[in-house]
């Protein structure tokens, strides 16, 4: 189920990446709008720089993978998009993260309102110790959703390919599910309020291979409706599921950002090739 690279490869503003010729894609061939863009993004933890001057445009309705060795800043980058880094006190962000043309770090942006439009799935499944129904309905509840909650819960669980497995036990605890089911429950929870972007921080690294492959299938489907940005440790996974891939190397530098096929077949940078072929990192 691997995707061939996207036809559109708008150049990011990064100096490092370069435009490459288009490939073919089974999704669409037309040019995609940008869902999230960063401009000269620098992030510091205290004195330490975690993200070094990253500018990139992330296309809408595509799966964009962020890969790189551990500590390269890819998770930090992900958490900048929905401002989860605000929770870390020593963290300081410079530059811009544009979401729909608005810099999310502008003074008038409420991070809570921002997060209501950007879903997030974490490394370790973290369902709340509530019933499956209440887990999925959580976002609706806190946002004061006035529609038919049950219908939305069903839709979301279907969207997360979990409905058939849990439809008879919606009132049992989310913690009773298996790890893979829990992670899909977390995905259902994330998509229930209908966000525009879904951030995934190594969503399969705590799961067994079978459960992981189900999530991968799901991510592919999700890209029909949502912009998915996924951090992964696993290069095969990035190759399988993403349309675009960004390679971060140490020091939080974005080294190369391009169509996935290009990155994996013919990277511009020697370092990226070394990393992908396992010579480094």
């Amino acid at each position: 189920m691997s995707n061939t690279p996207s036809s559109d490869t708008r150049s990011s503003d990064s100096l490092i990446t370069t435009d490459v010729e288009t490939g073919s894609n089974d999704r669409t061939a037309e040019s995609r709008a940008t869902a999230v863009a960063t401009r000269d993004l620098n992030v510091y933890y205290g004195d330490e720089q975690a993200i070094d001057d990253v500018s990139m445009d992330i296309p809408e309705n595509r799966v964009t993978a962020l890969i790189g060795p551990s500590g390269c800043g890819k998770s930090t980058f992900l958490r900048c998009i929905n401002r989860m880094n605000d929770m870390i006190e020593v963290c300081r962000v410079e530059g811009e993260v544009e979401f729909g043309g608005k810099n999310v770090y502008d003074a008038d942006v409420d991070p809570v309102a921002l997060r209501r439009r950007i879903g997030m799935v974490f490394q370790k499944p973290n369902p709340f110790p509530k019933s499956i129904r209440d887990n999925v309905a959580y976002g609706l509840k806190i946002q004061g959703f006035d529609g038919d909650v049950d219908e939305r819960v069903e839709e979301s669980l279907k969207g997360a390919a979990l409905w058939d497995e849990v439809k008879d036990q919606l009132d049992s605890s989310g913690l009773d599910l298996s790890g893979g089911q829990q992670q899909r429950l977390c995905i259902a929870r994330a998509i229930a309020p209908d966000p525009e972007v879904i951030l995934m921080d190594e969503p399969t690294s705590a799961l067994d291979p079978v459960a992981a492959s189900k999530i991968e299938d799901l991510i592919d489907d999700l890209a029909e409706e949502y912009t998915v940005i996924i951090v992964t440790h696993n290069m095969q996974q990035a190759a399988r599921i993403s349309d675009r891939t960004a390679v971060f190397l140490t020091g939080g530098r974005l080294v190369e950002y391009d169509d996935t096929a290009k990155i994996f077949e013919d990277p511009e940078e020697q370092r990226v090739e070394d990393y992908i072929t396992g010579k480094f990192g």
Binding site: N82, M84, M87, V112, A113, L114, R115, R116, R117, G119, M120, F122, K124, N126, P127, F128, P129, Y138, G139, I142, Q143, C186, R189, A190, P193, L199
Partner: peptide
């Protein structure tokens, strides 16, 4: 209470 749960809720846009 595990921090995971707090982050999960925060990421949903909970105040």
């Amino acid at each position: 209470v595990p921090d995971d749960l707090r982050r999960g809720s925060d990421a949903m846009g909970a105040t």
